[in-house]
Design a protein around this nucleic acid. Structure first.
Lengths: 132, 132
DNA sequence: TGAGGGCTCATACTAAAGTACCAAAATCGG
DNA sequence: CCGATTTTGGTACTTTAGTATGAGCCCTCA
């Protein structure tokens, strides 16, 4: 892919030279064309290379959720915890009893190796299974 | 600043034309120079414009901490809360009693308008006074 | 020097959070 | 359809968290 880009640029280069020597294009036009093309090449290259470094807390790693043995419902509860909701509030929004949420939370704490829900939030962020 | 850049580029442009007409530089060299310069201009512009969008949860807004009336010690406690520590653990790391931490936490919850410490974490992140 | 703010700590309480254990539906892959 | 997992829910209990109130200490600034 990159080699194709380089070949295309070299072709453009040569074309520019010939276009000038054929006399039907002024030097300014050619220079402008080259400048424009390489300007956008610079933009593109930069965008490609800056993406990974500027996006460390990016997408949620759902594979890690599986690896930890966290079920769908448990993950749902985790998200609500991270939003600062109480067990009762989570129970109401998910239309289940508070006991159920307590069970889920207990299991979550075990699987995330956390003692408190605040610690669970931290660990989840570290594991990139939560985006704050 | 931007106008200066543009003027510089235009000057480079004219210079290139003259350099060619004076005959002591080949068209390829000039094209290469222009390409290189605009390539890096593209890099630079992109880096400048991409910064704000890729950095929304950036620096901590200490002014907002003041505006909320959060004291130094309280903020310190807030940071420890966000790391998932219990009141007792915070008390031990700061060498004070748990009562003191409870007081600080209570005041923090008032000032952040939160009902729980998890909610306080969320609000603090929203206010950009915590970087997770 | 006195008022105010911040930090400390205590008691006494209420409210959440979390643990342990059990058990019945519901879901899903083989 | 069966077994395993998930989801649900309960009781009973311990532990944190959080509130309310009062108070002493230190520093600063008018």
């Amino acid at each position: 892919m990159f080699s194709a880009l380089i070949i295309a640029l070299l072709a453009l280069f040569k074309l520019s030279s010939y276009a000038y020597f054929s006399g039907d294009t002024s030097i300014e036009i050619i220079l402008s064309g080259i400048a424009l093309v390489f300007f956008f090449v610079g933009l593109y290259i930069n965008r490609k290379t800056i993406r990974p470094s500027a996006d460390p807390s990016g997408p949620i790693d759902l594979k890690k959720v599986e690896q930890l043995g966290i079920s769908k419902r448990e993950y749902e509860v985790l998200v609500h915890i991270s939003k600062g909701l109480s067990n009762k509030e989570i129970a109401n929004t998910l239309f289940v009893s508070e006991s159920t949420i307590k069970t889920h939370v207990s299991n979550l704490l075990l699987k995330l190796d956390a003692k408190r829900r605040t610690q669970a939030i931290q660990k989840a962020i570290d594991l990139q299974i939560l985006s704050i």
